[in-house]
Structure formats: C-alpha cells, structure tokens
C-alpha cells in the first residue's frame, strides 16, 4: 500500500487545539485559584473574631479551600511536560522554604518568640510556590 507524502504528513500531524488559547485559560484558572485561596484564608481568620457569623464564615472557608484545590488540580493537569517541570521545581522550593521557616519559628518559640497562626503555613506555601513559579519560569524561558 502506498501513500502520497502529503497524505502521510496529514496522518502523522493531527490537528490540535491552539495552545495559546489554552494559555489564557490556564492563566484564568491560576487567578481563580488565588482568589479562592485568599477568600478561604480571610474567612478562616475572621471565624474567631465575628462570632455571630461563625457558621457562614466556616462554610465559606471550607468551600473556598475546596475550590482552590480544584482550580489548582485543573491548572496542574493543563501543564505540558516543560511547564510540569517548572511546577515541580516551584513546589520543591515552596516545600523546602516552608520546612525551613517552620523549623526556624519552632526554634525561636523556645526562646519566647510569640506563636504564629497555623493559617500562616498554607499562605506561606502558596506565596513561596508563586515565587518559585516566577523564578523558574524566568530561568527556563
């Protein structure tokens, strides 16, 4: 069986959706993740301060955290292999940074340093992950 050169090329290079449109969607997903995470952190921090709205604030915090996780997963799944490598390095950076920060704070607390809210840990992880994404995207651009 013989194929013309054009037909063979048509067969081996299937049409795929234009990724730059997907890049826009990825950016939107990331922004939605930040908004959901911010909403969750703000609601969690207000739970103990505004007692009449304790239950709605708790619900808002949990829903926000769930939405943030969903948007994060959607963002991670839309990455190609190079972007996945950048994300992995950024996660490593955030994990190591948070570990060092937590250990330092724990050590300083034994010398009387005032306690830090547990809400600071996920917030710090997100901030370090974002810094890692910017740093490694710039480095491997």
């Amino acid at each position: 069986m013989t194929y013309s050169k054009g037909a063979l090329r048509e067969a081996i290079v299937p049409h795929q959706p234009f990724r730059d449109e997907l890049a826009g969607r990825r950016r939107t997903t990331l922004v939605l993740f930040y908004l959901a995470a911010l909403l969750s952190v703000i609601a969690s921090s207000l739970v103990g301060r505004i007692l009449p709205f304790r239950t709605p604030l708790l619900v808002l915090a949990v829903v926000g955290a769930g939405a943030a996780i969903l948007f994060l997963l959607r963002f991670l799944l839309s990455n190609d292999e190079h972007e996945r490598q950048i994300t992995f390095r950024a996660l490593t950076f955030a994990f190591t940074g948070t570990l060092v920060f937590s250990a330092t704070i724990g050590f300083l607390q034994s010398f009387g340093f005032h306690p830090v809210s547990w809400l600071g840990i996920p917030a710090l992880m997100i901030i370090l992950w974002s810094i890692g994404l910017i740093l490694y995207s710039w480095r491997y651009r």
Partner: peptide
C-alpha cells in the same frame, strides 16, 4: 513558535525553551 506549539500540543514557551537549549524534550515530544 506558536504554530509549531499548536501542531505538537505544547505551550509556545516550551518550543522557545527547546530552541534556546534550556530544555531537552522527552522522547515522545
């Protein structure tokens, strides 16, 4: 770069990183 990226299903930045030697693609890519 964007057209090639669309053909192979990756981001434009990935094609740029391969061209500049900052990223070695996997065998399938």
């Amino acid at each position: 770069q964007a057209e090639l990226a669309a053909h192979v299903g990756v981001a434009r930045g990935t094609i740029n990183a391969i061209e500049t030697g900052k990223y070695d693609p996997s065998l399938p890519l």
